[in-house]
């Protein structure tokens, strides 16, 4: 997936002298990625659009301080993730009744259900109902694990790049990714096992 690997290099020097053409190129190359990440983090198109705009405004205002030790796209992801997490924290502050134990996905990673739903026909795996469930299932991950999964598996960042974006160690990225993947596998198994039962009934 990682289309930005093949992206044309944008001159950091041009960005830092606020060259509009260079900045427009940066936006063109990264806006789909940033929007997708924000949408999957927040589950709401309007919030995702706000985060997208904030990310590029902050990038434009702070490009002088960017030292080029990572790719610009990694830096943009970092701004977008931080903005998204900040918005999620604000949302939770407004929900005073929410229980701290709500995020319970930091348990073990042992598989709970062993059901082979890969044999389901493609139409079942990509039906509108399945896609809706797939979208909702990702919201059950903790914010930290969701961000890690999106960066690694949907955006295609390396473990090292994801660690830079999230400002955590590479081993922490691996642990979070494993938990996220296994939890999503269980969620999808819940859903597709029912479909499998109906298929074979």
């Amino acid at each position: 997936m990682n289309e930005n690997i093949n992206q044309q290099e944008i001159s950091l020097e041009a960005l830092q002298r606020k060259d509009k053409a260079a900045f427009a190129q940066l936006v063109a190359q990264n806006s789909d990625h940033i929007y997708r990440l924000a949408l999957k983090m927040l589950g709401n198109p309007q919030d995702a659009e706000d985060i997208l705009q904030e990310t590029f405004i902050k990038a434009f205002n702070n490009i002088d301080g960017f030292e080029g030790r990572s790719k610009v796209s990694t830096w943009l992801y970092r701004i977008a993730v931080n903005e998204s997490l900040s918005l999620l924290r604000k949302r939770k502050d407004n929900l005073t009744s929410i229980d701290a134990s709500f995020e319970t996905d930091d348990g073990d990673i042992l598989p709970r259900q062993i059901i082979d739903w890969c044999c389901l026909p493609e139409r079942e795996l990509i039906s509108d109902e399945a896609r809706h469930y797939i979208t909702e299932a990702i919201d059950t991950l903790s914010d930290a694990n969701r961000a890690t999964f999106l960066l690694r598996d949907v955006e295609g960042l390396s473990t090292r790049e994801a660690a830079k974006v999230l400002d955590i160690s590479e081993s922490a990225v691996k642990v979070r990714l494993m938990r996220a993947r296994m939890q999503l596998r269980e969620s999808l198994t819940d859903f597709f096992a029912n479909k499998l039962a109906k298929e074979s009934a």
């Binding site: 997936m1 929007y35 659009e49 890969c118 795996l125 399945a130 949907v154």
Partner: peptide, 28 residues
């Protein structure tokens, strides 16, 4: 196999998510 399929389904879902044209214009 189910873990690989899970990841693949999220990758497919991600590939289909792009910035709507109206939102791109508002951004610019």
């Amino acid at each position: 196999n189910t873990l690989k399929k899970t990841i693949q389904l999220y990758q497919m879902d991600g590939q289909e998510t792009t910035l709507p044209d109206e939102a791109r214009h508002r951004l610019m």
